[in-house]
Design a protein around this nucleic acid. Structure first.
Length: 277
DNA sequence: CGCTTTTGACCCGCGC
DNA sequence: GCGCGGGTCAAAAGCG
């Protein structure tokens, strides 16, 4: 959401810029230009309002569920909560869309403190895309796949391959209810820095090129100890370029623009939509 | 050649 | 104790 708003904002900015750079448009276009500019201004302020609301809601959510819960993913993250319920029923990906479920057993929950953090991340994907890949900025190595009883879709098991000693694991499975929804369950904490911005950039460009795994384990450059080669590359210009890349890749996505348009029109113009955000 | 993915086998915990 | 099911291992295959 955050990045969606950001990219749309940027797009509006770029649009403004390109329109304003037109060399003295004919009078008939001036009115339209003025109208479009006003519309852009309006949209920008709407977005600012939406961002504020989002931040407020997010802060509330974090207050409610605690700092352990991760609210991430550019593709529509939801949340997690402290462990509850029995392991096998809680594991059901069927309740994923309703969020707030945990994977750990009661027993394990009691031992919490020494146990690794567990959280879930939900990502929307193209239903035709059969790969169980959730782009999260880390490098993962798949070590198993299993069809579980409560879900016909296979569950994939990944280890963090970014650093050899990293204890983090993740399980990825499609929701039984919504095949478009990937449920990634993370276990543990990374004992290294996240992939560098450069690698994120690689991921973005690879995604644009149509690669299935944006953070494919085979793709990123590595040093002997398995860390990213360009981990230090966090320069402002790189970030700026990264933001531009992300913005362009997002705005090229017709689904994204449709969702944003629906959201804006639904909220600000009273058009009711059944759009899921 | 080295690394990743695939996949069947095995291990282990849990419920009955 | 037994069976079931989830999680992991490891050999083979695939890929760049």
């Amino acid at each position: 959401m955050e990045s969606h708003s950001l990219s749309l904002d940027l797009t509006i900015g770029f649009a403004k810029q390109s329109i304003l750079q037109e060399p003295s448009p004919p009078p008939c276009l001036r009115e339209e230009l003025k109208r479009v500019t006003e519309e852009n201004m309006k949209l920008t302020s709407m977005l600012a309002t939406m961002c504020e609301s989002y931040d407020a809601l997010r802060a509330q959510l974090i207050d409610m569920i605690g700092p352990n819960a991760a609210v991430a993913s550019s593709e529509g993250a939801r949340s997690s909560s402290p462990p509850s319920a029995k392991r096998k029923s809680a594991e059901s990906a069927g309740d994923a869309a309703n969020s707030v479920s945990s994977t750990n057993s009661c027993k394990k929950a009691k031992e919490e403190g020494s146990k690794p953090k567990i959280w879930k991340l939900y990502a929307r994907t193209d239903p035709s895309d059969s790969s169980l890949v959730v782009r999260d900025g880390y490098q993962w190595r798949k070590y198993g796949q299993k069809v579980t009883r409560d879900n016909p879709c296979p569950r994939a098991y990944f280890r963090c391959s970014f650093a050899p000693t990293c204890p983090v694991k993740k399980k990825v499975q499609r929701s039984a209810d919504d095949q478009c929804l990937l449920v990634a369950t993370y276990e543990g904490e990374h004992n290294h820095n996240q992939s560098s911005a450069a690698e994120v950039e690689n991921a973005v460009s690879r995604k644009t090129a149509g690669t299935a795994d944006g953070f494919g384990a085979a793709g990123a450059p590595k040093t002997k100890d398995g860390r990213g080669e360009r981990e230090e590359a966090r320069k402002p210009e790189l970030r700026e370029r990264l933001v531009k890349d992300m913005a362009s890749s997002l705005t090229k996505d017709p689904n994204f623009t449709a969702v944003i348009a629906a959201a804006i029109s639904g909220r600000f113009f009273g058009i009711s939509t059944a759009q899921e955000m």
